[in-house]
C-alpha cells in the first residue's frame, strides 16, 4: 500500500477507521471515520481534549486497543502491511520493528524489576539476531544516542533510580532500538517538567530526522504541535474536525473548535506587553453515549446556525490542503 506522498514514501496509512467500545450499558463509536497518511521523516500531530479518541486511535495503530474496543471498519497499513488483519505472529514481528510507541508515563511503562539496559537489550534481542553481550553493548550505545549522561553506569540502574527525564530518554531508546519506520508518541512530555519537555521534544525531532522515522504525535498541547508537526489533525468527539498543514492551521484556523483551543492556550503577547484574554471553552466533550444531534461541538460553539443542530457537517476542503467540518465555514470554490 506504500504510495507517494508530497515528499516521500508513505509508511503509515489509515483509512475509514471506526472503533467501537462495548460496555457501560451500550456500545459507542469512539473513533469515527479516521484517516491519515504519514511519510518517512514526516510528523503528524493529533490534537484534542481528553476523551476525544486520540489515544484510542494511537493504540489502534499497533492493534493494542483494549479488549472492550473493536475496530468496526477501516484499515491501518504500516510499511505495506495491514496491521488489523495480520496473524498474531506477524503482528508481533511488526510491533517494535515496523511501528514503535512511546508512552505518556515513563515510570509505569518501564518494568520496575529490570535494569534499563536489560530492557533495551530485551527489545533488541526480540527482533535482531544478536547475542547477549552484543545486545548489552548496543543498549549502551542507544542510551548514548538519546543523550543519557554516563550511559555505562545508567544502563545498570532500575527505572526508579532515574529522574523523569532520564526515564523518558530510556523509553525512547527502547522504542527506537529496532529503528521502527513509524513512531507513535502518546503525550510523550505531559508527565515532565517544562524545561525537560523541550529537551525531550528536541531529542525526538533530532532522532526522527536522523533515522527518517515517521512520527505520530498525540498531544493536547498546541505549543508542542507548533514545535513539532508538519500536518495537524484536530479531533473532537472521536472525529476529525480540521486537518491542515501546521502553518495554515496556526495562520488561519477554520473550525470554531480549533480557534477556541487557541484562545484557551496561554501565551505571551508581544510588543505592547498586554496579556491576551485566556478564554475557556465552556462545557465538556459530549460523552459518546450522549452525542447531540447534528454537530457534536454545537452546544459549546458560539457560531451555531440552525443547521448545526440538525445535520452533522462533513469534513470537506475549505481551502487548499485545508479541511474542516463546519457549516459556518464556506467551502472552497
Amino acid at each position: 500500500m506504500a504510495g507517494e506522498h508530497q515528499n516521500g514514501t508513505l509508511v503509515l496509512e489509515v483509512k475509514d477507521l471506526d472503533v467501537r467500545i462495548e460496555g457501560g450499558g451500550g456500545s459507542f463509536l469512539v473513533v469515527r471515520d479516521m484517516a491519515f497518511a504519514v511519510a518517512r521523516g514526516e510528523t503528524l500531530a493529533i490534537v484534542g481534549e481528553s476523551g476525544c479518541g486520540k489515544s484510542m486511535t494511537a493504540l489502534t495503530l499497533l492493534r493494542l486497543h483494549p479488549p472492550a474496543a473493536t475496530v468496526e471498519r477501516g484499515f491501518v497499513c504500516v510499511d505495506g502491511q495491514d496491521v488489523l488483519a495480520l496473524p498474531r505472529a506477524a503482528l508481533e514481528d511488526i510491533r517494535g520493528e515496523g511501528i514503535g510507541m512511546i508512552f505518556q508515563e515513563p515510570l509505569t511503562a518501564l518494568n520496575p524489576v529490570m535494569t534499563i539496559g536489560d530492557q533495551i537489550a530485551e527489545a533488541l534481542r526480540r527482533h535482531r539476531d544478536i547475542g547477549r553481550r552484543a545486545a548489552a553493548r548496543r543498549a549502551i550505545e542507544l542510551l548514548d544516542l538519546v543523550r543519557m549522561p554516563d550511559p555505562d553506569h545508567r544502563a545498570r540502574l532500575y527505572p526508579h533510580q532515574l529522574s523523569g527525564g532520564m526515564r523518558q530518554r530510556a523509553m525512547i531508546a527502547i522504542a527506537l532500538s529496532c529503528e521502527p519506520a513509524v513512531l507513535v508518541a502518546d503525550e510523550p512530555t505531559t508527565a515532565l517538567d517544562v524545561t525537560i519537555q523541550a529537551q525531550i521534544l528536541g531529542l525526538i525531532r533530532d532522532l526522527q530526522q536522523r533515522l527518517g522515522t515517521a512520527l505520530v504525535l498525540i498531544t493536547h498541547d498546541l505549543g508542542v504541535v507548533a514545535e513539532m508537526a508538519d500536518t495537524v489533525i484536530v479531533m473532537y468527539a472521536g472525529r476529525r474536525v480540521e486537518v491542515a498543514h501546521v502553518n495554515d492551521l496556526f495562520d488561519r484556523p477554520l473550525h470554531p473548535y480549533t480557534r477556541a483551543l487557541m484562545t484557551a492556550a496561554p501565551h505571551l503577547e508581544a510588543a505592547d506587553g498586554a496579556k491576551s484574554m485566556l478564554m475557556e471553552i465552556k462545557g465538556a466533550v459530549p460523552p459518546p453515549w450522549d452525542m447531540p444531534q447534528g454537530c457534536p461541538f454545537a452546544p459549546r460553539c458560539g457560531l451555531t446556525l440552525d443547521r448545526c443542530r440538525v445535520e452533522e457537517p462533513p469534513l470537506v476542503k475549505k481551502r487548499d490542503g485545508h479541511l474542516a467540518a463546519c457549516w459556518e465555514v464556506p467551502d472552497a470554490a
Binding site: F103, A109, L110, N111, M171, I174
Partner: peptide, 17 residues
C-alpha cells in the same frame, strides 16, 4: 494491566515472553 506490559506488547513480545 501495568503500562510496561502494554509497552512490552508494543515491542512485539509474545504471550510467553
Amino acid at each position: 494491566e501495568q503500562a510496561y506490559v502494554s509497552a512490552a506488547r508494543a515491542l512485539g513480545a509474545s504471550h510467553g515472553r
